[in-house]
Simulated scan of single mutants.
Amino acid sequence: MTNKLNQIGLDKQASSDLADKLNELLANYQIFYMNARGFHWNIKGEKFFELHAKFEELYNDSLIKIDEIAERILTLGFTPLHTYGDYTELSKIKAAKNISSGPVAVQAILDGYEVLLPLERELLEMSGESSDEGTNALMSDYIREQEKLIWMYSAYLNR
């Protein structure tokens, strides 16, 4: 009889499904990160200093999350995607090019969260069903943080 558990004691098939979904989240986060980086570099206008700093916070936070997601995939026993071709093919977030307007950039961030948050909620549910506390805790933290950021970026846009 073959062992149905991976090296950390979780069901191998459930872990494979989680790793696939985590790779989808990773791909989307990579594009989200690059968009935030571009906004940081290219922002212009009245709120330059405020948004320049905010976008730097955002891309630094995204970089940490990218590493955490990739390491979680490895912990589950699988390989994280690691080419931009894979990221652009899988990501629902599209590259934002040559955006220098504050409101347009902030809306693009909010649009990115409209992709990330449902993926994270799906992963939260999947990880709960498979007793994967590590993935569950990550997603719970991400969701809580991003709900607050959505409120703040929406307030910036007067919504």
Rank of each mutant, 00 (worst) to 15 (best):
L10Q: 03
S101C: 08
L110N: 03
L90K: 14
S91N: 03
K12M: 11
F78K: 02
S15C: 09
E133D: 14
A108Q: 11
K54C: 06
I150G: 15
L76E: 01
F39G: 02
Q7E: 11
K148F: 14
L76C: 12
E68W: 01
K44Q: 14
Q146W: 07
L22E: 01
W41V: 05
T79E: 14
Y113D: 09
A36E: 02
N136W: 04
L26A: 04
K92S: 09
K44P: 00
G38P: 01
L51G: 02
V115G: 02
E129W: 04
N158G: 08
A70G: 12
M139E: 03
K92E: 13
E71M: 08
M139W: 01
W41D: 06
I31Q: 08
F48T: 12
L149N: 10
L18D: 00
A137P: 00
F55R: 01
I109T: 09
D111I: 06
K54W: 09
Q7Y: 05
G112C: 12
E129I: 07
E46P: 01
E122D: 13
E147F: 08
A53D: 08
A27I: 11
P80Y: 05
N60H: 13
D11G: 06
M1P: 06
I73R: 01
E57H: 09
R144Q: 15
N28Q: 07
K94D: 10
R37S: 03
L124Q: 07
D86L: 09
Q107H: 07
N28L: 05
G134N: 09
N158R: 10
D61K: 07
P103V: 04
L26S: 02
R72I: 04
I8F: 08
I99N: 12
K47S: 12
E125M: 12
L138I: 15
W41Q: 08
Q30Y: 13
H82F: 13
G134S: 13
L5R: 05
S131M: 14
D20F: 10
G77S: 08
I66G: 00
K44E: 15
M1T: 10
K94F: 14
D61I: 06
F78G: 00
N3Q: 14
N60C: 08
I99R: 11
E57T: 07
L63T: 05
Y33G: 01
A108K: 12
K4T: 15
L5V: 11
D67Q: 12
H52E: 09
M126E: 04
V106S: 03
A36S: 10
L10G: 09
E89K: 13
G128V: 15
E68C: 07
I109F: 06
N3R: 06
S131L: 15
N35E: 03
N23P: 04
D20Y: 10
A53V: 14
A96F: 06
S154I: 14
I93Q: 08
V115R: 03
M34P: 00
E125H: 13
D17M: 07
K97V: 15
Y84L: 15
K65F: 08
I64F: 09
L110T: 06
K21C: 05
N35A: 03
G45S: 08
L110W: 00
E57I: 05
Y87D: 02
G102Q: 11
N136L: 14
M126N: 02
A155S: 12
N6V: 13
F32R: 03
F55C: 04
